[in-house]
Design a protein around this nucleic acid. Structure first.
Length: 510
RNA sequence: GGUCCGUUCGUCUAGGGGUUAGGACACCAGAUUUUCAUUCUGGCAACACGGGUUCGAUUCCCGUACGGACUACCA
């Protein structure tokens, strides 16, 4: 394979959508697999849609998920600048070339005139396009005399430059994911290449830049598929047919239920993030919570995203980035859109979170507790993390599940209280409390021994009172191993909690 | 409407002319855990439909249906 050079080319019009992250990821995986280069190109040719902060956001988001950029606006590189607004004169040059070669023309039609043309065509049942049939009725350098055109331009009349698409020719391209795609030029209209503000449109800019930046593979979303033949045509007209990159159009990320592409609205409705990081809309001031802030680990998100539309063909599910790079192949990307299933993302997160050490998990707990004004020694935090590690999906679960070690219960699970708080459990807990009160060193072993002794003495099966004991100790119906919980709490705390439970719950029972 | 693209369990998907159509998530059940969770075992559950081609089609071809994308001086 020739030198692999891929690009991720977002438009700084807002936060980076999770689908964009996946597109960037696939580009990145291919680049790394072939020791190629990953290029970040900012497509900011629409000045009206520019959103301050968006570019920085995109870079921060890529950095967070671990996608490294080899060439880009900050990094620089042999084909700088990497911001399209800074490459304006380059596009003008190639537009001029197309004009000279008769592959493009000036058009002076106003928005109203275009609108009128479309309405007229619509009424007659013809597909409304600015094409070989309609352009002869419009105001452009094909219908106007050379003098008229020159006069208009000299007078400063606004104009655009359009591609002169042939009347009827088959354009073919071989998509790496979908195979051969063939379209007749009669279905393509004379797309605007240069806008009246002097900026290029995407169609010109992406072709010119991909060529100049020696891009080997264009990996982008399926929404570009319909205009891909137009781009192929542009490469041909520019004389770059032989250097044309390979195309791979990715299937879309779909909403979890129903149909259609995943939108922020869906995500909001179903209660999951759609942006990698927190994003505050500069216009509305509205904050959208990111995957990072929700507690998703970048490696989990990457693993999850990689599998949305691609799979290695083996039964392995958990992949490090290095493994993904090794296994990745464009040919194994699926064709159909993939519904976004947040439950699967949660599962990946759980897997990655669990694989962390007690120390890492414990530090997470310490940080969380500190923000609530609670101090916790390292050793205790590590022990709590160890007890909780099998039950957490998000880092914040450690603190929320671990709070039982720092706060005595004030209320008790009602279901357990009504079902399990009876003479037997009261008897056992009373006796256990007295037993533990006598010891000063409470460990898993001594706690177990105490419980066994008490239940044996009273002739009550332990299983019958475990839930009552847990409720008395923590207020809840579930939690980490009870003996571990008691050991972590210590003798005096256990005694006082059991006493409190016995006092408050007794009244309720009678 | 037109053009293009797509369609295997609820979801992500493997597979491929002859398979008990495999895995994962979710869900359900049992076991273990003296409790809940974990873990383990098992279960539920899919080739959109109709025509071909073929000895044989879920797999190849053609239609149909359904779905999606695109159809801007936005990307």
């Amino acid at each position: 394979m020739k030198d692999v050079r891929v690009r991720f080319a977002p438009s700084p019009t807002g936060a980076l959508h999770i689908g964009g992250v996946r597109t960037a990821l696939y580009n990145y995986l291919l680049a790394r697999k072939h020791q190629g280069k990953m290029i970040l190109r900012i497509e900011d040719t629409d000045q009206n849609r520019y959103v301050p902060g968006a570019e920085v956001y995109i870079k921060d988001a890529l950095k967070w998920v671990g996608i490294e950029i080899d060439e880009g606006p900050d990094k620089g590189g042999p084909h700088a600048p990497y911001r399209q607004s800074e490459r304006k004169n380059i596009y003008t040059k190639y537009a001029q070339q197309l004009l000279n070669d008769g592959h493009a023309y000036y058009a002076f039609d106003s928005a109203e005139e275009l609108e009128a043309m479309r309405n007229r065509l619509m009424k007659t049942g013809v597909n409304p396009q600015y094409d070989s049939a309609t352009r002869i009725e419009m105001k452009n350098s094909l219908t106007l005399s050379e003098d008229e055109v020159n006069n208009k331009i000299r007078a400063g009349a606004p104009y655009v430059i359009r591609l002169k698409v042939p009347k009827s020719e088959q354009v073919e391209l071989n998509d790496l994911i979908r195979g051969k795609i063939s379209v007749n030029t009669s279905q393509i209209d004379d797309k605007v290449l240069m806008k009246s503000d002097g900026m290029p449109t995407y169609h010109l800019a992406n072709v010119v830049d991909d060529y100049l930046m020696k891009i080997s593979h264009v990996i982008r979303g399926e929404e570009w598929l319909p205009s891909a033949p137009l781009h192929v045509l542009t490469y041909k007209f520019l004389g770059w047919e032989n250097e044309m990159p390979a195309f791979a159009h990715l299937p879309l990320l779909l909403k979890p239920d129903g149909k259609g592409k995943l939108s922020k609205r869906d995500a909001d409705q179903m209660g999951f993030p759609i942006f990698p990081l927190n994003w505050t809309d500069p216009h509305t001031g509205e904050l959208a919570e990111g995957f990072r802030e929700r507690g998703y680990l970048p490696e989990a998100l990457i693993n999850f995203l990689a599998f949305l539309g691609w799979n290695p063909g083996t039964e392995q599910e958990l992949f490090t980035v290095e493994e993904l790079i090794e296994a990745f192949e464009i040919e194994r990307i699926g064709k159909a859109g993939a519904k976004f299933d947040i439950q699967k993302a949660n599962w990946f997160n759980q897997q990655y979170l669990r694989s962390k050490t007690d120390e890492e998990l414990g530090q997470l707990l310490i940080t969380d507790l500190k923000s609530q004004g609670i101090d916790c020694e390292n050793e205790k935090a590590y022990a709590i993390a160890n007890a909780l590690r099998e039950r957490i999906t998000f880092p914040s679960d450690i603190a929320s599940l671990g709070k039982i070690f720092f706060f005595a219960p004030k209320s008790f699970d009602e279901k357990i209280a009504s079902k399990k708080w009876n003479n037997e459990s009261i008897a056992v807990i009373t006796a256990l409390k007295d037993e533990i009160n006598k010891t000063n060193e409470l460990t898993v072993d001594t706690a177990t021994t105490a419980l066994v002794d008490v239940t044996n003495r009273l002739g009550i099966a332990q299983g019958k009172i475990m839930q009552a004991l847990r409720m008395a100790l923590t207020g809840g119906a579930s939690g980490p191993d009870l003996m571990v919980t008691m050991a972590l709490l210590g003798a005096s705390e256990v005694t006082s909690r059991l006493t409190y439970a016995l006092n408050t719950l007794e009244e309720k029972a009678s």
